[in-house]
Simulated scan of single mutants.
Amino acid sequence: MSVETSDYSVDLTQPCVDDPSKYIAQSRFGKNISMDILCQILQQYLNSGSISQLSCSEKLGVARFDFMDKTIILYKSGKIDIRRTSGVEDARNTMKNVEDMISGSFSDTFSD
């Protein structure tokens, strides 16, 4: 089930060090993420060129990659950090795109 972009609660934090006109956004998908599946999905996107700079650790429960001129950090708890976003609506749109990409990795339980 896909969530509409207006349903994401997004908190903007300090301006990015790289670009003071951009922000870091923090939010949650509301579902846990199965890290082994997420890493496989993201590897396919890396191979296709849709994302870059992938670092994914099942053991640590975190994935980091560049997508749409932003750095995305995903945690197995469903938390997401979006760096270099221009604002709340940009962050929500980015979350929707990321959700569509990784929807197969959402889980009701934590994966070790």
Rank of each mutant, 00 (worst) to 15 (best):
Ser105Asp: 03
Asp90Val: 04
Cys56Met: 08
Asp108Arg: 14
Met101Val: 03
Gly104Val: 01
Asp90Pro: 04
Lys22Tyr: 04
Lys76Asn: 07
Asp81Cys: 08
Val10Thr: 04
Ser57Phe: 13
Thr13Ile: 13
Tyr75Cys: 05
Ser50Val: 10
Ser86His: 06
Ser111Val: 00
Pro15Leu: 10
Gln43Thr: 09
Met68Gly: 00
Asn47Pro: 04
Phe65Cys: 04
Asp7Leu: 14
Ser48Cys: 02
Val98Ile: 14
Thr94Cys: 13
Val17Met: 09
Thr85His: 04
Asn32Ala: 08
Phe67Ile: 03
Val62Arg: 08
Asp11Ser: 14
Asp18Glu: 14
Glu58Pro: 11
Glu99Val: 04
Ala91Ser: 15
Arg83His: 14
Phe106Gln: 02
Thr71Gln: 14
Gln53His: 15
Gln40Trp: 07
Ile73Leu: 08
Asp19Glu: 11
Phe29Leu: 00
Cys39Ser: 02
Ser52Gly: 09
Glu99Trp: 07
Thr71Ala: 12
Glu99Arg: 08
Cys39Glu: 00
Lys31Gly: 01
Ala25Asn: 02
Asp36Arg: 15
Arg64Asp: 06
Thr109Pro: 01
Lys59Glu: 14
Ile41Arg: 03
Cys16Asn: 13
Ser57His: 10
Glu99Met: 15
Asp81Phe: 14
Ser57Met: 10
Lys76Tyr: 12
Ala91Arg: 02
Glu99Cys: 07
Asp69Gly: 09
Cys39Asp: 01
Cys56Thr: 02
Asp11Phe: 11
Ile51Leu: 07
Ser103Leu: 02
Ser107Asn: 10
Phe29Arg: 02
Val10Met: 08
